[in-house]
Nucleic acid binder design. Structure first.
Lengths: 221, 221
DNA sequence: CTTGTATCAGACTGTTTGGTCTGATACAAA
DNA sequence: TTTGTATCAGACCAAACAGTCTGATACAAG
């Protein structure tokens, strides 16, 4: 009894997302997605041209929600304070507070499942994941640059992009740590560690003897 | 012409490791492993009871090499200096120097490929990965505890185990970052970031006004 | 009512899969 | 030489797989 239309598509996507995150994409058969979403072959291949097209749709959906989550955290941080360093901490605390909710909603990250299958990655889903990665890098790097105007106390240049990427890295690594031990509490603890480390770095920069910004510090380039 | 014996087994393992890391375990067929290792069905199922048995053997091999790598870094750090803080940095620098070699030898980490397939994880390979994770945690935590005798300057207790896990987390997250962008240089940059962050934390602790160690600091427990 | 279209159901198909089975080959021990 | 065993080769099989096809149902437009 076909009634509503695209609600079926959404039901298939939700079921498939869970199965792919839990078991991987190649290990998730179309038949099982159909069975667990109470759909049918005809329905599935009406909404998706192929199994790979499902992967594309899954990544599109997931990446959109992911980037939305990022922007929510950025807005939260900007609204919380005007102090650049405190904004950085507020940004990280936002995810720290969300950690347990994230882990109860999903056992791992879809990116992990998709990125492990290189064939799919080359098919066009890769671009969407990379766009999300770049969004995270740029979004947090903007906060970081405001809080890290100069050099670290040790006189070492910090690669702000790489430092910003470390948030993404911590998320993905923590997802794997949770899975390898079966303890989803690692996500919260790793985000706490990330905040502590970042606070230490910001504290070290703040404690640096005031150098003149944008002045004649000997450049290496 | 059967000549040497277990060299075939090793050839199959090497081929399978590469294929599984590149494409995932479920997406790697036994037929392809056979073809690319110039072996045969009879040979494969003589050395491995099933495809899952191959997974078990792969993880066993990989985890052993992984833990050996850890112990090499620990010995390097202990031999390098007696200063606890410098030992921590030496440990991290060891991997930083190895980053490019690691990435040219393998495009990602076998753990990622195995952990994404939950069915396999429950089969018995999971224990070996978890043992490796615990080895990393305990190994680095010992160095950390020597260098972090007290509290951080902010008066916040650091979870040393979680801080130690962050090395594993950084590795796994960096592997995924490399894959999502196709840039293997991220591994080196992320390990550099990890070292910078850890140095800042150690510096912050060192700059803490000298509290009496093991004395009557108000305990929370 | 008629027609068109979007949605769905499920039987069906050709291919790929993990795994089995029958032998063949090399070699060591007797 | 004879026997036994470890190793390998590849034909073969049943199950699972992604994808196709025919048709049914609902509903909106005319």
């Amino acid at each position: 009894m076909p009634r509503d239309g695209s609600a079926t598509r959404e039901r298939i996507l939700e079921t498939a997302e869970r199965l792919v995150i839990d078991n991987g994409f190649a290990a998730t058969s179309v038949d099982r997605v159909i069975a667990e979403s109470h759909s049918s072959k005809g329905s599935f291949f009406h909404h998706f041209a192929s199994k790979n097209d499902l992967a594309r749709a899954l990544v599109e959906r997931y990446a959109a929600a992911d980037v939305a989550h990022l922007h929510a955290a950025l807005e939260h941080a900007r609204a919380a304070t005007d102090d650049p360093a405190k904004r950085v901490v507020a940004f990280l605390s936002y995810f720290e507070n969300d950690a347990d909710a994230i882990m109860s909603a999903q056992s791992s990250c879809l990116y992990v499942s998709i990125l492990t299958e290189r064939d799919l990655v080359l098919d066009g889903t890769s671009g969407q994941i990379e766009e999300a990665v770049v969004a995270w890098r740029d979004g947090f790097a903007e906060l970081l640059r405001a809080a890290l105007p100069g050099r670290t106390p040790a006189g070492v240049d910090i690669d702000v992009d790489a430092l910003s990427d470390h948030v993404f890295v911590t998320f993905e690594g923590a997802f794997l740590l949770c899975r390898s031990t079966g303890d989803s509490g690692h996500m919260h603890r790793q985000l706490t560690v990330l905040r502590h480390l970042m606070e230490a770095l910001l504290g070290a920069v703040a404690a640096t003897p005031p150098r003149r910004r944008r002045a004649g510090t000997p450049s290496r380039h």
